[in-house]
Simulated assay, not measured.
Amino acid sequence: MNAFPSRSEETEREEMARLLPGPAERDLPPGRHLRHKEILMQQIRHDQSSTPASAPVGPGRRGRRLMRPAIMIPAAAMAAAGILVTSLSLGGHGSSTTTAGQSVSVQVGSAGDATTLLDRIATVASQRTTAPIRDDQFVYVLSKGAGSIPGGQRSDDGPAELGPVHERRIWLSQDPTPQGANSGMIREGGTTFGMAAPSPAGGGGAGGVPAGIDRPTYQWLASLPTDPDALLKKLYADTRGNSSGGQDQAVFDKIGELLREAVMPPQTASALYKAVAKIPGVIEVPDAVDAAGRHGVGIARENTSLSQRTEWIFDKTSLSYLGQRSYLTKDTNQGKAGTLTSISAVLARAVVDKAGQEGATAGG
């Protein structure tokens, strides 16, 4: 005879479920953990560089670093991270609902063709005219793009997912003094950020980052060597080896930052492209598409540790810079080969007299 009162099968199942041990927690695969760490560090660097327009600028935070290829952190990412921002109505300048294609074709590239193409691009760059920029002016860049949504913001922790393509407007101060960087501004994802650039690690001082590799003003770019070998040597010396792909990849990524959000003298631009041809592993990709849907030819390098290729995209006729994109070259925990992880397009570049002002397209 049963000594316990009778219960329904459903109640018994619930009781057994409570008594059984819970499922074991899964550790993230090493590749996934590395990717999440990189995304978090990119987000932290962006958050550290962006403060609300109304917030005071104070010392103690690392200087603003330009974004890595096309990684545009939306306001939602900062909200999830607990970052306080001031949201302003920008009259249609917010996030769009359009998402770039999630996958591309992984094409075979050529190192020899890259050298030839970069020489052509360098020649065209040297023939452009750019008026010198005053220290009290700003470089304005309008772009659009999308980056991978961090796993914590997705409905699951599955493969990489590209966020919505959205516009980004940035005003970069040309004041070479450390405090000059603080007068810049960013509008992105429906939010306006004042830019703060406190002292870099170990730099000391009362805050701010002077003109240099991490804040490339026009005058600093004009001071660089125009001999490709000397220029490349300086870039290697000035670029911290903080890329998981090694120093060559770190320099390639840094040059990509210079191309994305700077206006540079023609001779500097020409020398820069010739220097890129000397970096091991650089290839030409026959066809590449930017975030605006424009087809061009790509100059690329693969970060083999992440199985991820980054491409700089140039118009096939004018050889003007269009944008960048990054994608997986092999099947990984983040997705299948060809999965896009970021994409961007530069729509306008100008020199203006104050932050918030938009102007005509400048050379570059």
Rank of each mutant, 00 (worst) to 15 (best):
Q174N: 10
P52L: 01
G323V: 04
P59L: 08
N303H: 07
E358C: 07
R26L: 15
L66N: 08
R134L: 06
G112A: 02
L90M: 11
L172N: 14
I133G: 03
K336L: 15
L322I: 05
D156R: 02
A196F: 03
S307T: 02
A230P: 02
R64E: 14
S155Q: 10
I133S: 04
V289S: 08
V209Y: 00
A288T: 15
G63D: 04
Y236D: 09
S54Q: 03
T361E: 07
W220L: 03
K234V: 04
Q334T: 02
P265D: 07
M78C: 10
R168G: 11
A76C: 06
Y321M: 01
G109K: 09
R187Q: 11
P286Y: 09
V104Y: 01
W220S: 02
G208D: 02
F4N: 01
R32E: 11
G363T: 15
H93L: 15
V276Q: 09
Q43R: 14
A237R: 13
S305A: 03
T177Y: 04
A76I: 09
G189C: 15
Q357A: 14
A122P: 06
A291L: 03
S148D: 00
A292T: 05
Q179P: 07
N242L: 02
I83G: 08
G364L: 07
T116Q: 08
K233Y: 11
P132S: 00
G204T: 04
S223T: 07
R325V: 08
T86K: 10
P286T: 09
D290Y: 13
Q107H: 08
L20W: 04
L172M: 13
P265I: 04
A355V: 03
R309W: 08
T98Q: 06
D331N: 12
G203C: 00
L117M: 12
S318W: 03
A125N: 01
A146L: 03
R18F: 13
A288E: 15
G92H: 04
A211D: 02
A181T: 06
R187D: 14
D227N: 13
A271F: 05
P286M: 12
Q179G: 11
V282N: 11
L90Y: 05
V351M: 09
P30A: 14
A300L: 06
G212K: 09
G152P: 00
R309L: 11
T226W: 02
L117G: 05
T329V: 12
G147C: 07
D47V: 14
L118E: 02
